[in-house]
C-alpha cells in the first residue's frame, strides 16, 4: 500500500514528440484514480511512466516516499494489467500467476497459497491447469487480474483492461474490479477512454487532453462543474450543448441571465437538464424545431435546431415523448444549470 506522487511529470519521446506535460497528481493510499481522455492524449504514456516501462523525461515520481524515476518496473512494487492481457501463452494459468512470485524467490508453498487464494477470489480455480488459449476473453481478463493480485503490490496499474470485452461483460468486470479494489484497498491508476467506466469506477477522475490535465476531481465534481469546455464536451453523454450567451440573452428577459458572469460568452447546457415541462420560477424557456427523435427504451434523445444556431442541440428526456419530427417544442432549463465558459480560454467562469 502506498501513495503515488507525480510532480511535474513530462514525457518527450525521441524525435521531439511531446506526449505528456506538467502532470501533477497526488494519489492517496488506497485511492482509485481514473485517467480518461480521447485517443492519443497520453493516458497510456503516463501510466507506463508510472510503471517504469517508459522513461520519465521530466519531473519526479514517488511511490510511497521513494523516488522511483530510475527504478526498473520490477523494483517499483507495482503490478500492471495490459489491454491485451499479455498472458504468457505457453504457460498454464497457474504458472502465469506464479511467474512473478518465482522470480522474486518466494517459497513454493507461499506461491501455491497466494495463487490459489487469488484464483478463488477471481473464480478461475478450475482453469489453473489450462493454457490461456483455452480460455474465453473474460476468463483471460481474470487471469490477467490474478497475475496482478498475487503479487500484493503497492499499486495496480490498468491500461484499458476491459476494452476487449463485450458490453455486458465489461459492465460486470467493471463492478468486480471496483469491488476487489475497494476490498483490498490497493492504490490504483486506471486508464480508460470510456467515460462511463471513468465516472463509475473513480474515486477521482483525471481528464487529460493533449498530454495536459484538464481537470482533476471526483466524478460528480467533474460532471457538475466541468472546468473547461473540453471536459464539458467529453464527460456526459450525449455531450453538453454549447450556446453563445448573446444568443440566450436575445431569447429571455434581461434579468434572467443576470447571474451569469460578464466574461462568460458561452453557455453549456446538459442534454439531461432540458425538460419539456413549462418554464417555472428560476427557469428559462427555449424553443427549437425537432429534427430527429431517437427513442432508446427508457430514455430518448431529441435533436433540435434553434434558429440562428448552426449546431444541433440535443435534449435527453427520461421517457419517449409523443411528438412529431418537424414540430416546434419549447424546453425549460433551470438557470443554475447553465455552465458559463469563456470561449477564448475555454475555461469555466466562476
Amino acid at each position: 500500500m502506498a501513495s503515488i506522487t507525480m510532480d511535474n511529470l513530462g514525457k518527450v519521446y525521441t524525435g521531439n514528440v511531446r506526449a505528456v506535460s506538467d502532470v501533477n497528481i497526488d494519489i492517496a493510499d488506497g485511492e482509485m484514480i481514473v485517467l480518461v481522455g480521447p485517443s492519443g492524449c497520453g493516458k497510456s504514456t503516463l501510466l507506463r511512466m508510472v510503471a517504469g516501462l517508459e522513461t520519465i523525461t521530466e519531473g519526479t515520481l514517488k511511490i510511497g516516499d521513494r523516488v522511483v524515476n530510475q527504478l526498473e518496473p520490477a523494483d517499483r512494487d507495482i503490478a500492471m494489467v495490459f489491454q491485451n492481457y499479455a498472458l504468457y501463452p505457453h504457460m498454464t494459468v497457474f504458472n502465469n500467476l506464479a511467474y512473478g512470485l518465482k522470480n522474486r524467490g518466494f517459497k513454493k508453498d507461499e506461491i501455491d497459497r497466494r495463487v490459489r487464494e487469488a484464483a478463488t477470489m477471481l473464480e478461475i480455480g478450475k482453469f489453473l491447469d489450462r493454457k490461456p488459449r483455452q480460455l474465453s476473453g473474460g476468463q483471460r481478463q481474470r487471469v490477467a487480474m490474478g497475475r496482478a493480485l498475487v503479487r500484493e503490490p503497492a499499486a495496480f496499474l490498468f491500461d484499458e483492461p476491459l476494452s476487449n470485452l463485450d458490453a455486458k461483460l465489461r459492465v460486470q468486470m467493471r463492478v468486480e474490479i471496483r469491488q476487489l479494489q475497494k476490498r483490498l484497498g490497493t492504490t490504483s491508476l486506471y486508464v480508460t477512454h470510456d467515460q462511463l467506466e471513468a465516472l463509475t469506477m473513480a474515486d477521482r477522475l483525471v481528464v487529460l487532453n493533449g498530454g495536459r490535465i484538464e481537470q482533476i476531481g471526483t466524478p460528480m465534481e467533474v460532471y457538475l462543474r466541468p472546468a473547461t469546455t473540453f471536459v464539458a464536451g467529453f464527460i456526459g453523454s450525449p455531450a453538453m450543448n454549447m450556446l453563445p450567451t448573446a444568443y440566450l440573452r436575445g431569447l429571455v428577459a434581461a434579468d434572467a441571465l443576470a447571474h451569469m458572469p460578464v466574461a462568460a460568452d458561452l453557455v453549456g447546457l446538459r442534454p439531461e437538464d432540458l425538460s419539456l415541462a413549462p418554464a417555472g420560477e428560476g427557469e428559462i424557456a427555449l424553443t427549437g424545431q425537432l429534427m430527429l427523435l431517437e427513442p432508446a427504451g427508457a430514455e430518448s434523445h431529441l435533436h433540435l435546431t434553434f434558429e440562428g444556431i448552426k449546431d444541433t442541440i440535443v435534449a435527453r428526456l427520461p421517457h419517449v415523448p409523443d411528438v412529431q419530427e418537424g414540430s416546434h417544442l419549447t424546453f425549460s432549463i433551470r438557470r443554475d444549470k447553465l455552465h458559463p465558459f469563456d470561449q477564448a480560454t475555454g475555461k469555466r467562469v466562476a
Binding site: 517504469g52 520490477a74 500492471m80 491485451n84 499479455a86 504468457y88 522470480n103 522474486r104
Partner: peptide, 22 residues
Amino acid sequence: PEELMEAARVDGAGPMKFFKDI
C-alpha cells in the same frame, strides 16, 4: 507482442530470464 516483454519486466524477469522463460 511487446507487452509480453513488458509483462515479464513487471514480473521481475531480466532480459536473459525473459529470453529463456518466454
